[in-house]
């Protein structure tokens, strides 16, 4: 699908809240099957894959006890699950029922070796791109672990250099985006690994980051970045221009509502307090956007998934005035 010439951005309303503490505890990534939603969790309440459905029902766990520091999750067309473990330096492949089909990856810094593999994404060919954090690079592998490509590999803050990258995404045109975590920026590369552009710098203002944890790109080319320690997600257009930010607008998930309705004390305490903080994001670890322009945010500190949905109208070149070189005050 070709990208539109331009957009009428109508809005980005809140869409859905999924999960709750002790179900989707401390989510770090999310993936989707035909009917199931797979949430990768990490921490003292469980480091495993939680399966829920769109009705927010708990369908069980996959991979319990298998992971130390699970970081990234991918779900393929057969609903096989790929989980990176940045303590074990492995990628584990499981069936949707949790049977381990394959484990690959070995520690080291040579091409094809890994040192704390974190985020994962598929490219258009179905290969896997891995953020190889301590080696300051991303690598591309076949699904069974054959090394195909290395991008980066030099620690630093110059163009194409990286400092402990965390998130990675590949868009439909083949460009690779890296949330260059300790440099507080996102870098964009061609599929061949050539540097294209950089977005962001350190701080908490618009377009600034405090340790960005992930990045994703929608079919319009809009870029979403989870700005981890600023507790928000920022959105940029394909040129890297800041569009808006998401600080969280959660309502009660279905399972959360059912829990509260069964607990009289909880009901009373919520009547005694200010509920505004319940909407907000806390240390979001992962953003993913799907083909329906739904933006999924793994709200790590609040144990849930917040979902927004983009409203935009695609414009042809004839529908919009030509680009302007300068701003104008006469805006009609």
């Amino acid at each position: 699908m070709a990208r539109p010439y331009a957009l009428l951005r109508s809005g980005f309303p809140y869409y859905l809240t999924m999960g709750q503490r002790r179900v989707t505890s401390n989510p770090v990534d999310i993936g989707f099957g035909e009917e199931n939603v797979y949430v990768l969790t990490r921490g003292g309440l469980g480091s495993e894959v939680r399966v829920i459905n769109w009705e927010d029902e708990n369908l069980g766990l996959r991979g319990s006890g298998s992971f130390t520091w699970p970081a990234g999750l991918l779900v393929d067309e057969d609903e096989n699950l790929y989980v990176s473990d940045e303590a074990k330096n492995t990628i584990t492949v499981m069936s949707k029922d949790g049977d381990v089909l394959d484990t690959w990856g070995e520690p080291g810094s040579d091409h094809g070796q890994l040192d704390r593999p974190s985020a994962l994404d598929f490219d258009a060919q179905g290969n896997i791109v891995v953020s190889d954090t301590i080696n300051n690079r991303v690598q591309r592998f076949t699904r069974d672990g054959k090394h195909l490509q290395t991008i980066g590999g030099v620690q630093g803050s110059g163009e194409g250099e990286m400092n402990m990258p965390w998130g990675v995404a590949v868009d439909e045109l083949g460009f690779v985006y890296v949330s260059d975590w300790r440099n507080d920026r996102v870098q964009k590369f061609t599929g061949e690994g050539e540097f294209v552009m950089s977005i962001g710098s350190s701080g908490s203002g618009k377009g600034e980051f405090n340790r960005p944890s992930s990045v994703d790109v929608d079919a319009h080319g809009d870029i979403y970045v989870s700005d981890w320690l600023n507790d928000r997600v920022q959105m940029f257009n394909a040129d890297g221009r800041f569009i808006e930010q998401f600080i969280g607008d959660a309502n009660l998930s279905k399972s959360g509502r059912e829990y509260i309705l069964a607990n009289q004390v909880t009901l009373r305490l919520r009547e005694m307090t200010d509920l505004e903080p319940t909407r907000r994001l806390s240390a979001p670890c992962r953003v993913r956007v799907d083909s329906e322009f739904r933006l999924f945010i793994c709200d790590f500190g609040q144990h849930r998934i917040q979902v927004y949905k983009k409203e935009a109208y695609e414009l042809s070149e004839s529908q919009i005035a030509p680009p302007m070189r300068n701003p104008i005050l006469f805006t009609t």
Partner: peptide, 13 residues
Amino acid sequence: FTQPIPLYPFGHY
């Protein structure tokens, strides 16, 4: 002190 929002369903406040 202000009443904190309960632990469940979304964690401590």
